[in-house]
């Protein structure tokens, strides 16, 4: 537990978070730190995040990324975070390996789209420019931007996320050991 509570003078760490091609499970796990959330809000403030609903992020200290990269929008969001954050963290299996969404990687993306939109309903594949275009494969985020830290788990437990964040915020080398370091 965190005893060295931040003094009022301490500048809050600014954090941006996003879920790309993920299930929001890692974000749910972040909320799983329970009452420590109260300590967290003393330490950090949120920029772009599902928590704040800010759409574009500004300069910040840490960007936490859940999910892999499956479409053009994911690439743009990820690049924006990378450009603005000092430290970028891949959180959870999908961000690190592509995870469950990458199960489609052995299929042709064109076949997937026609199967879903044409063969079943007799319609057409939507072509609205508003819609993000799918990449042919789902990629882990480190294939698109430089990543500073990887926190494994599907999802990483609330304890693991808390341990990692507090290590980072207080300038310790972030370190996860068994049983917090796990890949399932």
């Amino acid at each position: 537990m965190l005893h060295a509570a931040a003094t009022p003078a301490r500048k809050k760490v600014r954090i941006a978070t996003t879920s790309l091609s993920g299930c929001f499970g890692c974000h749910m796990s972040l909320l799983d730190i329970d009452e420590r959330l109260l300590e967290l809000v003393d330490l950090v403030e949120f920029d772009r995040s599902p928590i704040t609903d800010i759409k574009h992020c500004g300069p910040c200290d840490v960007a936490i990324v859940e999910g892999g990269v499956c479409n053009a929008e994911n690439v743009h969001v990820l690049r924006e975070l990378r450009a603005n954050a000092k430290v970028l963290v891949a959180l959870g299996a999908c961000a690190i390996n592509g995870g469950l969404p990458a199960q489609r990687n052995h299929l042709d993306v064109g076949d997937c789209l026609t199967r879903v939109y044409c063969d079943r309903t007799g319609g057409e594949v939507p072509d609205d420019p508003e819609l993000p275009l799918l990449l042919d494969k789902v990629h882990p985020i480190n294939e698109v931007v430089r990543v500073d830290y990887f926190v494994p788990g599907c999802p990483p437990s609330g304890d693991a996320i808390w341990k990692y964040l507090t290590d980072l915020i207080f300038g310790r080398m972030p370190r996860l050991e068994h049983p917090m370091l796990r890949f399932d």
């Binding site: 789209l113 420019p129 990449l135």
Partner: peptide, 21 residues
């Protein structure tokens, strides 16, 4: 500092073709 591991534009080619965008 960094370059992507794959050609991003080429990765969109198949979806471009199928949507005609």
């Amino acid at each position: 500092d960094f370059e992507p591991a794959f050609d991003l534009d080429a990765a969109l080619a198949r979806a471009r073709e199928i949507t005609g965008r």
